[in-house]
C-alpha cells in the first residue's frame, strides 16, 4: 500500500491452483492495506476467500485493485465480509476500483461480493474485467446501491466486461448520480430505483444449450447472452429486494 497524490493505492491478489486429488490451494493470497484477504474453511474442493475491509473506503483519490485468478481445474469462491462504501475523500479527484478476474480451462470462479454503496458526495469509477477460458465456468454478481437509506447517491460509473474464449459476451456500463449523463434516474435507465445489479454466468454448455429468457419479477429478467453465457439483470427499490431477485434469477438458471 502506498499513499500518494491524496489517495491510497492498494493491490490485492489471489491465485487459486488445483492440487490432486480433489483440492484447490492458494499459492498467492496477498492483502494490501485496506484490502485484506482471509482464507475461510473450504467447501469440498473449493477454496474460499473473504475480502475484509480493513479501513473504510474507497475514498476520493484512492486507487484499489483486486486480481483473482483460478488456474486450470481450480475452484475458487470470493466473497466480502460487508458492503463496500464509496465515500467522499479529502481529494477532489475520483476514486478507482479495478477488479480483474481470470478463469482458466476447467476452472470455476464464483465472485460474490456484498453490494457497493455509493454514498453522497463520493465519486467512484469501477472497472471489472473478466476473462474466462473456453472450458472455464464463472458466476459473478455485482450490486450497486445508490446512497444509504434515504440519502442521495454519489457519482458512480461502473463498467463490466466479460470475455470468454476471446469473444466479448458482455460489455455494460452504468453511470448514475450527480454529474452522470442526463436521464440516468428516468424511465429508461433506473426509473427511480435505488438498487441495480446483475449476475453473469458463464458455462461452456450454454454455447449449445442457451438458457431460456424469462421474467423473474417486476423488473428482473434472465437473458441468454450472445455466447456461452447468461445474465440476470434487475433493478429494485433497495439492496435487500435486489438480492432476492438476483438469487431467484440465479436459481432459475439452475
Amino acid at each position: 500500500m502506498t499513499t500518494a497524490g491524496g489517495g491510497v493505492r492498494a493491490r490485492a491478489r489471489i491465485l487459486a491452483r488445483h492440487r490432486a486429488p480433489g483440492g484447490t490451494f492458494l499459492p498467492v493470497l496477498e492483502s494490501d492495506g485496506p484490502l485484506a484477504l482471509r482464507r475461510t474453511r473450504a467447501g469440498g474442493d473449493e477454496a474460499r476467500v473473504v475480502l475484509v475491509g480493513a479501513m473504510s473506503g474507497p475514498l476520493g483519490g484512492d486507487r484499489f485493485e483486486v486480481e483473482a485468478e483460478a488456474d486450470t481445474g481450480a475452484r475458487l469462491r470470493v466473497q466480502s465480509a460487508a458492503a463496500t462504501l464509496a465515500l467522499p475523500g479529502q481529494s477532489k479527484s475520483e476514486a478507482r476500483y479495478d477488479v480483474r478476474v481470470r478463469v482458466a480451462d476447467r476452472a470455476e470462479l464464483c465472485w460474490l461480493p456484498e453490494p457497493l454503496i455509493s454514498v453522497r458526495g463520493s465519486d467512484l469509477r469501477v472497472r471489472t474485467d473478466v476473462d474466462v477460458a473456453p472450458g472455464g465456468r464463472l458466476v459473478l454478481r455485482e450490486e450497486q446501491v445508490l446512497g444509504r437509506a434515504g440519502e442521495e447517491p454519489g457519482r458512480l460509473v461502473s463498467r463490466l466486461t466479460v470475455r470468454t474464449g476471446g469473444l466479448c459476451v458482455l460489455d455494460q456500463e452504468v453511470a448514475c448520480g450527480p454529474g452522470a449523463p442526463g436521464g440516468w434516474d428516468g424511465p429508461a435507465v433506473l426509473a427511480g430505483h435505488r438498487a441495480v445489479g446483475q449476475v453473469v454466468v458463464v458455462r461452456p454448455e450454454f454455447g449449445e444449450r442457451p438458457v431460456a429468457a424469462g421474467r423473474i419479477g417486476d423488473l428482473c429478467v434472465v437473458m441468454p447472452l450472445a455466447g456461452p453465457a447468461a445474465l440476470v439483470s434487475a433493478v429494485a427499490a433497495d439492496g435487500l429486494r435486489l438480492r432476492r431477485l438476483l438469487d431467484e434469477g440465479l436459481a432459475a438458471i439452475g
Binding site: 463498467r159 466486461t161 460489455d171 455494460q172 456500463e173 452504468v174 453511470a175 449523463p181 424511465p187 429508461a188 435507465v189 433506473l190 426509473a191 430505483h193 441495480v196 446483475q198 423488473l219 428482473c220 429478467v221 437473458m223 439483470s233 434487475a234 433493478v235
Partner: peptide, 10 residues
C-alpha cells in the same frame, strides 16, 4: 462506449 440502460433491457 458501453453505456447501458437496465430498465430498457429488462
Amino acid at each position: 462506449p458501453a453505456a447501458g440502460a437496465p430498465v430498457l433491457e429488462i
